[in-house]
Amino acid sequence: MTSTQSTPSPDMQALKARLKATWESGDYGVFARSLEPGALVFLRELNIRPGERFLDVACGAGQLVIPASRMGVDATGVDIAANLIGQARERAAAEHLPARFDEGDAEDLPYPDAGFDVVSSLVGAMFAPRPEHVAAELLRVCRPGGRVVMGNWTPSGFVGGLFRVLGRHVPPSPLMPSPMGWGDEATVRERLGWGARELGFERFAYPFAYPFGPAEVVEFFRAFYGPTNRAFAALDEGGQAALRADLEAYWAEHNRARDGTTRLDSELLVVRLVRA
């Protein structure tokens, strides 16, 4: 059996098209390199064994799938951004890895029921606009007794605040629930608890580190991170200046470094589920 998700309304289809364009803007493959240390910690904590079938949902340019494939895992990645899937395939081919990458939607995964032993998503599927569909799909493609593990930004963490800054300048669509709902334990229990034999949570301080100051970090996000890139593109010159000033102030406020670089942590809610 494959997904039986309902067809989105025309307004939702338009929103999903805009979100796809957002994640295809900038260059998340470049952006994610700065987040690689935390991603590798997340991957190690998955404890995937060689030969297990592993799916990473909203995989970007393969930040988890490529190293998992190096370890002998039967690794697959899926992402809505066609350009990132292209990057991931090129990376796998360059290393002669058997990792598979597919363009696809977290709300309508192109895989059969119970096809994977471990299903993960690291700050990816949380940004899909219909969380109830995402939850159903993560559970559907995981075998009974298999594991679903998510890493989601929390509302109270640094990234939660960063999106509030963006939202003050470019309000999100009323059709789009806050992605940070995935960082709230009670909300996650409502969405995933029905399919869980076990469900637990951990908090993880995800490191951000850049060899330049907050002003340069803002420009880095503007160039390479889709949501920031699109927020700036939606504003006129004055609006862009105001957004830049608020973002620089926010980064400077939370920066622990005093040597011209930028270092801080953002709270991640790690969701660990054993499929019923």
Score class of each variant (00 low, 15 high):
T7Y: 00
D11K: 07
D11T: 11
M12E: 11
Q13W: 04
A14Q: 12
A17C: 04
L19W: 09
A21P: 13
S25G: 06
S25I: 06
S25V: 07
F31Q: 08
A32S: 15
E36H: 00
G38T: 02
G38Y: 01
G38I: 03
L43Q: 05
L43C: 07
E45G: 02
G51N: 02
L55Q: 12
C59E: 03
A61F: 09
Q63S: 11
V65P: 13
V73T: 06
V73G: 01
D79F: 08
A81M: 06
A81P: 05
I85S: 11
G86S: 15
G86D: 15
A88Y: 12
A88G: 14
A88N: 14
A93Q: 15
H96A: 15
H96S: 15
A99F: 09
D105I: 06
D108C: 09
D108Q: 09
P110T: 10
Y111K: 08
Y111V: 13
A114K: 07
V119C: 07
S120M: 01
A125F: 06
F127P: 04
P131E: 00
A136M: 11
A136N: 08
E137R: 09
L138Y: 12
R143T: 10
G146I: 11
R147W: 00
R147G: 03
T154D: 02
G157K: 00
G161D: 05
L162P: 09
F163Y: 14
P174E: 12
P177T: 10
S178P: 08
A186C: 03
V188R: 00
E190H: 04
R191I: 02
L192T: 04
Y206A: 01
P207G: 01
P207H: 00
P211Q: 02
P211H: 04
F212V: 03
E216F: 00
F224H: 14
G226V: 13
P227V: 15
R230Q: 14
Q240R: 14
L247I: 08
E248V: 15
H254F: 12
D259K: 10
S266R: 00
V270Y: 00
L273E: 05
V274D: 00
A276G: 14
A276F: 13
